[in-house]
Design a protein around this nucleic acid. Structure first.
Lengths: 130, 130
DNA sequence: TTGCTAATGATATGGTATTCGCATTAGTAA
DNA sequence: TTACTAATGCGAATACCATATCATTAGCAA
């Protein structure tokens, strides 16, 4: 049977609490505060478990390692800060993108990523890791 | 000095002629028709050379290997077919995406990818590799 | 042609994120 | 508590694309 471990809970809690998609090593760093000696392998194992059960999903940006966010989040897009490299959620979606495809093409889905400077980095503030 | 080889020319010609971004192995497959015995290492070498001199640029889709297109192409986006996995150019851009970012965020650039079925695959035609 | 050496072909190697193997730890039911 | 075994920690192993190595080929100037 499945056991409720401190490590599993820590991984989940960190993703829930982040309010932005996290890299595996970010999960490790944050979860370590609650579960010391947490290993990266365990982070990956729990990420996989949570993905398989549908609790979280991967957010993949071009050329970057997957980040993870709550699967319960509704359709949205992302913003990446070029300075601190963190990824933030965008609540809005431009919509009506199907018209961009040529005739005969069937659009099923889309992905939009904005790049720039986040609030902290625009203001020359040093962002906190959480 | 730099020498004009059949292989280098073949790699460049294939990218010019494709009218869509190509993976390294697609370049290899297509260029082999002109330059038999062409090796993947040479494809990568020439891709790098062409990139360094600014002739081509990489197009990276989430979780996928880089594709290459002519750098002279103006701002545009891409469509990927989920069946044949080929990537196509979209001529249009929705524009005015800056408004999607929260206050304090500075948008410098954006990336948009549509996913679905290309013309060939919508019509159950088998796409030609070129 | 000849000679120089840039470029190639074939394969080995590197870099790195993720997964595996296994001894150990620690949930959980009784 | 105790026993059972799922889950962990840690290091090794894997997988993958891209680059490096190096003997060989082939541009190109003379």
């Amino acid at each position: 049977m499945e056991r409720k471990t401190r490590q599993h809970q820590a991984v989940y809690d960190v993703i829930v609490g982040a309010h932005r998609p996290l890299l595996a090593h970010e999960v490790l760093a944050l979860a370590t505060e609650v579960a010391p000696r947490l290993s990266l392998a365990t982070v990956y194992r729990n990420i996989k478990t949570l993905q398989d059960e549908g609790s979280i999903r991967a957010v993949v940006l071009p050329g970057q390692n997957p980040r993870y966010e709550l699967a319960s989040r509704s359709h949205h897009h992302h913003f990446q800060c070029r300075q601190c490299e963190r990824v933030f959620d965008l609540e809005a979606c431009p919509g009506n993108l199907d018209r961009l495809a040529p005739a005969g093409f069937m659009v099923e889905d889309h992905e939009l990523i904005l790049y720039g400077r986040c609030d902290d980095c625009s203001a020359d503030r040093v962002p906190s890791p959480a």
